[in-house]
Amino acid sequence: MVEDFLRQSPLSHLGLATHARAEIAADDGVALAERPFRTVITLRGPGGEGAFASAVEQASGLKLPQEVGAITGEAEGRQLLCLGPDEWWLCDGNSDAESLLVALEDELAGQFASAVDTSDNWFALEISGPQATDLLAKACPLDLHPRSFPAGRCARSLLSKAPMTLQKLDESPRFRIHVRRSFADYAWRWLSDAGREYGVSVLSA
């Protein structure tokens, strides 16, 4: 793992901190915030309530969601995202990946399954504000209406040309997006540009 003092956001060249605010400006419709160092562990294994599910639950303390698009856990803390019939993300905002990995490897020993730390592959940002859904709708083909994409759901899709993993954290609304680290600049600029008509606040990381 990279030493903390060496870690750099892929957006550090944009100098976002210089104009970041604590909360969205009164006349802005959208707020963007980077969340650069979230832990992501990619889990592959058989779905269903078998040994894999219980091993993951033992190691993470979270129930393994079985339906694609479902999330268990807390938005700000530890989460399990079901991204495919045999693929999950274990995300965490606080603990580092190593301790989680050790626990997972212990529990999964002997199973046909894998747990890989992909944290450094990903970059997260959050979109909030009254017009966050409108902005996101410009970028991705998902139906974002609360009826079909309520808070607590996740989906993989496209942010313009960049593959993304999207979560809806709450109905305020607030979305979290993971794109590959090399797409961070693209995603940020794309959203900043597309959001100009609503007014974009930058929130502190």
Partner: peptide, 11 residues
Amino acid sequence: PHCGPRSETEF
């Protein structure tokens, strides 16, 4: 079959 109706651009 796993994610429901999605746009062709995702496929």
